[in-house]
Simulated scan of single mutants.
Amino acid sequence: RNWDYRYCWLRDASLTLQALFDLGYDAEAEAFLSWLLYTTRLTRPELQIMYDVYGETRLHERELPHLAGFAGSRPVRIGNGARSQLQMDVYGEVLDAAYEFIRRGGRLDRSTARMLVDLGDTVCRRWREPDEGIWETRGGRRHHTYSKGMCWVALDRLLRLHDAKHLEAPVERYRREAAAIRADVETKGFNQRLASYVSEFGGDEVDASLLLLARYGYGDPAGPRLRGTYRCIRERLGADGLLYRYPTRTGGDGLPPGEGAFLACSFWLADNYLLQGRKTDARRLFNRLKRYANDVGLYAEEYDPLAKRLLGNFPQAFSHIALINTVLQFMQDDIRKNAKKKPRKKAVSY
């Protein structure tokens, strides 16, 4: 499972932008978003899941058999074959990033507004298709629940921007398609026996991407369906206080079975505890996660609970963005609770 990560993933970029905005780095966030929207024009009205820093889209993958990775792992690859995958969730993440920019006072020019509506039209045209999903599995396309939910997010953000007069969208079409997406997710993406959303329509497995649904406003984080999903994810994917991304024991992802626990997913669980009002559980989990950093406070992509060591790309931006966003969630929770109280001079440490 060696992959070439020298590229910008739209999903990661969206979460990075959220952190930059919340930290007050507005100029940096606006510059990053401008690059992101300019780059995605190269494939308009479709989105590729990743681009290099020059906006290049031809990131052909090949293996280097004469090299080995960490601990002798093979094959080493350059380029990334996932570039050609269909991952419908990225439409929701890009449009959410644009929405956050505008919500905080940013403005769209006419060309960019038209491009965003074009992305919405692509969602309407393609959301019913199966895709490879957020985890870039190589076992074929399926109807992933998270991907469908993020298609709903994409149309929801465009409808909000239309209502606020930032762009002109085909409102009736978007409302109709958004309602159809939600109906499909609620009937096909929810398993009544498990009382949980599931990875794929009609399936009985879960994956940790479902923890992001509440973050993007799909459903009530304290409602029975999402609470049941959190419980199922902890039971099925939890190990030593960490979470795996999805079950890898069968090799159903088209790759050799087995990998470490995915650190970002455990931070997402802490986020969901906060959204539910379970701050004690969130802090207990967060304090545990801090122990998995190395001696200078950095995280890899994964952690092996058995061998007690970091695994995967190091340092991993995805893990650190998850860490930052969780800390920001703690801070926002404190701000909400202290809004009517006299400000304190003592800083809060996380």
Results as ranks from 00 to 15, higher is better:
residue 1 R to W: 12
residue 1 R to P: 11
residue 9 W to E: 01
residue 9 W to V: 03
residue 9 W to S: 00
residue 13 A to C: 14
residue 20 L to S: 09
residue 21 F to C: 03
residue 25 Y to L: 15
residue 28 E to P: 02
residue 30 E to R: 12
residue 33 L to S: 08
residue 39 T to V: 14
residue 39 T to M: 09
residue 40 T to L: 15
residue 40 T to Y: 05
residue 44 R to N: 13
residue 51 Y to F: 11
residue 54 Y to R: 13
residue 54 Y to K: 11
residue 56 E to H: 10
residue 62 R to E: 11
residue 66 H to C: 07
residue 68 A to W: 10
residue 70 F to R: 11
residue 74 R to N: 09
residue 77 R to Q: 05
residue 83 R to K: 14
residue 88 M to T: 13
residue 97 A to W: 03
residue 103 R to G: 14
residue 109 D to G: 05
residue 110 R to C: 12
residue 117 V to E: 06
residue 119 L to P: 01
residue 122 T to L: 12
residue 124 C to V: 15
residue 127 W to A: 01
residue 129 E to H: 12
residue 131 D to G: 15
residue 131 D to F: 09
residue 135 W to S: 01
residue 135 W to K: 02
residue 137 T to E: 15
residue 138 R to D: 10
residue 141 R to Q: 09
residue 158 L to P: 00
residue 160 R to L: 11
residue 162 H to G: 08
residue 164 A to V: 09
residue 165 K to P: 04
residue 166 H to K: 06
residue 176 R to P: 07
residue 177 E to R: 13
residue 178 A to P: 04
residue 179 A to T: 13
residue 180 A to K: 08
residue 180 A to T: 03
residue 181 I to S: 00
residue 184 D to F: 11
residue 186 E to K: 05
residue 186 E to S: 11
residue 191 N to L: 08
residue 201 F to E: 14
residue 202 G to F: 00
residue 206 V to P: 04
residue 209 S to T: 10
residue 214 A to M: 07
residue 220 D to A: 06
residue 221 P to V: 04
residue 222 A to E: 07
residue 224 P to C: 02
residue 228 G to N: 00
residue 234 R to E: 15
residue 236 R to M: 11
residue 239 A to D: 15
residue 240 D to S: 14
residue 241 G to P: 07
residue 241 G to R: 00
residue 243 L to R: 03
residue 246 Y to Q: 03
residue 248 T to D: 15
residue 249 R to M: 03
residue 249 R to Y: 09
residue 250 T to S: 12
residue 252 G to K: 04
residue 254 G to Q: 13
residue 254 G to K: 12
residue 257 P to M: 10
residue 261 A to W: 06
residue 263 L to K: 02
residue 271 D to Y: 06
residue 272 N to L: 02
residue 278 R to Y: 05
residue 278 R to A: 07
residue 279 K to T: 14
residue 280 T to E: 15
residue 282 A to T: 07
residue 285 L to Q: 12
residue 287 N to P: 05
residue 290 K to N: 12
residue 297 G to R: 04
residue 297 G to A: 10
residue 305 P to I: 12
residue 306 L to R: 13
residue 309 R to W: 01
residue 320 H to R: 04
residue 321 I to V: 13
residue 324 I to H: 00
residue 332 Q to S: 03
residue 334 D to V: 00
residue 334 D to T: 00
residue 336 R to H: 07
residue 341 K to S: 08
residue 344 R to W: 03
residue 345 K to Q: 14
residue 347 A to R: 10
